[in-house]
Every structure is written in structure tokens, then in C-alpha cells.
């Protein structure tokens, strides 16, 4: 459904943030894109959403295709209309708008107002806490509630592909659990394909069927989730299951060594 081939992304004409990555999200699948700070995950999502230009970023090479349509030159409005909705990192709700308004505005581009009302009810069923808070200013919600609200706003856009940027960031484990269950539910019930960006590889690999690991703007490893979760390096550096006890940076391991191990 989504197919990225060898894209390179440059900021301000000089900073090469993404250096030729390729990835694929199959129809109805959940795919995880993992990696530590600054790996280029958000940059990749911004490229797909067509919002790089507002940050002086540019796709300089490669192709992004969605259901066979080339997205490289499309703007964010066109891309949303094609059915790709991003839930950006950092819980970017509209804090001066009420919970309801945040949800309605998520359906801004839609003309099927009857379906929009149904989707609103669906979001409220997924996140009952939002129903309780529906008239409140979103800025006064707790972190977990805000994360639920941005996801709800994303669902209101009627996505065929929902891209979530670090939904677990800064949330208590119980809330993370709850949110990830809902993500899975949305995937099952709506057949919405999901591209999940996470630093928390542990939880992401639990719901994803396939994963990519990014570092320094490159995909360094990819494979089915179980295989990734069983990989020694991934265990050590992303799942925090190290024998040594302390968490090392993945970069500490010599490059050739990592390459070799993955290939074997």
C-alpha cells in the first residue's frame, strides 16, 4: 500500500537527515519504524505527509508511492485526502480548542458529514474518557488523554494509513498499554494500515508484524517482529535486555560487526 524506495531527505540544503531508506507497509498491516533519537524517523513521516517544506526540508532522491500514486510532489492537503493521516509526535493537540473541536477539525477535509458523526461516536467509544471531557479545553487534559485525543483526531480524518509518531513517549506503562490496544483495535476493526514510529521497541514489536530499525538516516535492520525481537543486538540495544546490565549506545558496536551479525 505504501512503498518507499531509496528516499534521501535534506534539511536546509545541507543536512542529510535520511540517507536512502526503503520500506513498505502492506494493506491492513502494522509496521514498526524503530530507532533512537535523531535517527530520522519523524523526518521520514514528514516526508510521507508532505510537510517537509515548512521546515526547509526536501526529498532529493527516491520515491514515495501510495496505492501506486507518487507522493513526492504532493502537498499535505492532497495527501490527507488520499487517506494518509499522521498523528505527530509530542501530542500536538490544539490546546486552545475543546476536545470536541479538536476531533471535528480532524475531519476538516471530509464531506461525508453523516459518516463523520459516526466516526465521532466511534472515537468516543474507543476513548470513553474523551466523552467525559468533551467540552473541556484540550490544554487541560492529562498527557495520556492528550495522546488519546491526537489519535482520535487522526481517526476522524478517515485514514487508510495511520502514521503514529512515538505515541508512548512520556506516558505511564499502563496508559501506553491501553493506547496500544486501541491502535490494534483500530487496525482490526477498520482495516486501517498502521505505520508506527517508536523508540519503545518492546511494545511496538508486540503489535507490529514487521519492523524496520533506523540509525543515522539509514535502515540498518528489518524483519518480521518475532525475528527482530529475538535478535541479540536488538535485545541489547532496544529492548534493554543486556547481559552487561548497562544500556550502551548501539553505535558503540563497530559497524562491520553489526552488519555481519544481521546478515547471518
Amino acid at each position: 500500500m505504501l512503498k518507499i524506495t531509496n528516499i534521501e531527505i535534506v534539511y536546509n540544503d545541507v543536512i542529510l537527515a535520511v540517507r536512502g531508506i526503503s520500506l513498505e507497509v502492506p494493506q491492513g498491516g502494522i509496521v514498526a519504524l524503530l530507532g533512537s533519537n535523531g535517527a530520522g524517523k519523524s523526518t521520514t513521516l514528514k516526508a510521507i505527509s508532505g510537510v517537509l517544506d515548512s521546515e526547509e526540508g526536501e526529498i532529493v532522491d527516491g520515491k514515495i508511492e501510495f496505492k501506486g500514486v507518487l507522493l513526492n510532489r504532493k502537498n499535505s492537503k492532497e495527501i490527507v485526502r488520499l487517506g494518509i493521516i499522521q498523528v505527530p509526535e509530542g501530542r500536538r493537540i490544539f490546546d486552545e480548542l475543546t476536545v470536541d473541536e479538536n476531533l471535528w477539525v480532524g475531519a476538516y477535509h471530509r464531506l461525508d458529514s453523516k459518516k463523520v458523526k459516526e466516526d465521532y461516536q466511534r472515537v468516543m467509544d474507543y476513548f470513553p474518557i474523551l466523552r467525559e471531557r468533551h467540552g473541556q479545553l484540550a490544554g487541560y487534559l492529562s498527557g495520556g488523554e492528550q495522546q488519546m485525543l491526537v489519535i482520535g483526531r487522526g481517526i476522524m480524518g478517515k485514514p487508510e494509513l495511520l502514521m503514529l509518531d512515538e505515541p508512548s513517549l512520556g506516558l505511564a506503562p499502563l496508559i501506553v498499554e491501553e493506547i496500544f490496544q486501541i491502535i490494534q483495535k483500530v487496525n482490526h476493526e477498520e482495516r486501517t494500515s498502521i505505520l508506527l514510529v517508536e523508540q519503545n521497541a518492546n511494545i511496538a514489536l508486540q503489535i507490529a508484524s514487521y519492523g524496520y530499525i533506523m540509525e543515522n538516516g539509514k535502515v540498518v535492520l528489518d524483519g518480521p517482529s518475532q525475528k527482530l525481537a529475538a535478535n541479540e543486538d536488538v535485545k541489547e540495544f532496544y529492548l534493554g535486555l543486556t547481559d552487561v546490565g548497562s544500556r550502551k549506545s548501539y553505535r558503540d558496536v563497530k559497524h562491520y560487526k553489526r552488519r555481519k551479525r544481521w546478515l547471518s
Partner: peptide, 14 residues
């Protein structure tokens, strides 16, 4: 109001 509140977030939802 959404645009006034957060231009980037508004852009990203289309």
C-alpha cells in the same frame, strides 16, 4: 482557530 493555535499541526491534518 486551529491554524492560529498551531499552524504545523493544522497543516498535518490537511
Amino acid at each position: 482557530r486551529a491554524v492560529a493555535n498551531d499552524q504545523r499541526a493544522a497543516q498535518i491534518i490537511g
